[in-house]
Amino acid sequence: MIKVKGLSINCLNGVNLELGGISCILGNWGKDKESLISAILGKEKYQGKVEFYVKGVLIDNKEALMLTRVIPQYMEKPNVKASSFLYPFTKVFGGKVKEIMQVLDIEDKYLSEMGDYELFKVYSAPLFMGDVKFILLANLLNSVEEQAKARILKDLIKISKMKNSDLILLIDSAEYVNVCESLYVIYGGRILEEGKEFLHPYSMALLNSRIKMGNKHEKIDVMEIGQPTSEGCPFHEFCNEMKLRKYLWIKCRLEMPDMMNIGEEKVACWLFREEFRQ
């Protein structure tokens, strides 16, 4: 498990997360998610704490990095063969390239000739090198073709179960949240929701943005989600719920609400405050 406590870095503002099992962080890809990955990997200085636990025992962050693998947002396609690409990883993490390629059924051809799923298999090979306890998927699902997404997710879940490791998925589509054991919704550097109920208007907007099969020239009922605002709730400029309720206008524009419990969910939205529920 990775525990993030009061993390502030760049636009992230006092973020608390407990990432264990299959954890998802949903939200538009932006500086906030990039900063979160940087903090977890110790690439940038930050305020707050990032703690790594293996079987409930706190381990050193440097040790944790050797147990962490990241699958990047964009899979580069250098003009090298799969074996040449993977060889340097074995130097760091151990393992034998040929054997791993055989297990994963990776053909030793040039990466530039590979389709998305084949390429993913190459990028997932380091998960079989050495001990792995934390797997981070950095919004890769956005950049691969539709047909590869479900298979990539299925494979990652299988690998994480096999390796008994935590899988942290950074995603910007609500389409695959059913695989998540825990879900955080992040926008403008703040956690807006914990849970899979999609209560926050931002979460709802993401959910409604999914394109499904439709009739010819049938439009999607969607609103544009632009850049977050720094004052008040980061989503207030686009929030229809706020626009419908005059009594929320000042609150949402000026004050960021704290997380509040709604059943088993947690949501940071004035709409759910007892005094504003109507």
Binding site: D172, S173, S209, R210, K219, V222, E224, I225
Partner: peptide
């Protein structure tokens, strides 16, 4: 390419307008 769900949906709607 390069867009999230929200961007895709908006572009699809815009293209319907253009069509």
């Amino acid at each position: 390419y390069g867009l999230n769900d929200n961007g895709r949906a908006l572009i699809v709607n815009s293209l319907i307008d253009l069509i």
